[in-house]
Design a protein around this nucleic acid. Sequence first.
DNA 1: TAGATTGTTAATCGATTAACAATC
DNA 2: TAGATTGTTAATCGATTAACAATC
Lengths: 216, 216
Amino acid sequence: MEEKEISQAVIGRLPRYYRYLGDLKDQGIERISSQDLSTLMKVTASQIRQDFNNFGGFGQQGYGYNVEYLYEEISKILGLYQKHNLVLIGAGNLGQALANYVNFEKRGFLIRGIFDSNPALVGKEVRGIPIRAMEGLEAFVKENDIDIAVLTIPKTSAEEVAERLAGCGIKAIWNFAHVDLNVPEHIQVENVHLSDSLMKLSYNLNRYNKEKEQKE
Amino acid sequence: MEEKEISQAVIGRLPRYYRYLGDLKDQGIERISSQDLSTLMKVTASQIRQDFNNFGGFGQQGYGYNVEYLYEEISKILGLYQKHNLVLIGAGNLGQALANYVNFEKRGFLIRGIFDSNPALVGKEVRGIPIRAMEGLEAFVKENDIDIAVLTIPKTSAEEVAERLAGCGIKAIWNFAHVDLNVPEHIQVENVHLSDSLMKLSYNLNRYNKEKEQKE
DNA sequence: TAGATTGTTAATCGATTAACAATC
DNA sequence: TAGATTGTTAATCGATTAACAATC
């Protein structure tokens, strides 16, 4: 069966649904209508129903959606029931922050190895995981069935490391380096460009202040 | 003059243009056509011209765009010529990583104060900036002309802190806590939801693998 | 002047919203 | 059965792409 491609706009909203449904579940709420969820999340009920129907009918007419069931279904869609082995490359501040972030482990994202090009860091540990030298990267990825690499390195070395990762069969890169990576199509890349995000905030802040000035 | 609202889709692309233009500038390239930039950035030339024309004509027929000029103009649009005073709330791993990130300072985002609710951290320093107790937050924000708060605290306390910030006149929040904040409309919020980002990667990774299996 | 390339209008595409018949 | 609410089709809206006249 040829499945129709789901737009990235929809995918991008799923984690937010997942979060709200998790909260509802924790509150012991059993069912919710698209209308109520719409009020809660400040999106249209129509969009909620459309989004869910991309993946088949999760609701029931006259009843709404079962919170726990919907939560589980979204988790399956996002692939969270599945374990992933990660390597973290770049044990600087941000890398260490991510390595210490326990919530990823809970969702099945397991950091198996940490690498850094700085000899002073090699041999040290972050949350019990030793920091390794970059030389061993390829072998480690292959031997430990690693599918995701987290890139928290400067932009200058990011492209080179990405190529090495592509060469040893990595499947996805979570990229915090401030460049766009040039990797083969079959490798999934998700960028987190922090300074881009801050610039957006800067724009909106300035725009709002300007508008205010004009009114005065 | 009533300025027409620029869509967030366009704003979201500006930092990427800015980055590419900065690189071109560093390479000493003087001018570029929308066509060449299009090839480089893998977007359509049409989109590039439309985007820039939202802010007035930056180019010249038959010539293209002057790299340095365009770079400066985008920097102005994004408000990067302007200094902003920030407080960082939450001196955990992520907070410290951000505090240590020098590039923000370069762009005029100056971290003036760091706050944490953990008494064990209070009094310590991050890059020369002392960590303060939460009690002093409001006074500090007012006295130091702070306009942006960076929230790197757990979701449980995020809403409460956001309300305190709203109460003392903060203008924008860069939110790393994994909740949607309920603040008045005039406060700009930019969310960085890391786990949402990882879930998106997870979805795309799984989808690709599934498609591959089907073909085999 | 001729060629290049923008600025801008028009066409297309996709995503969001509205409406309502189906059905629990 | 009557009421509620989904699933889904149709309408609208906005964003992207194409086309080309304006102009450097």
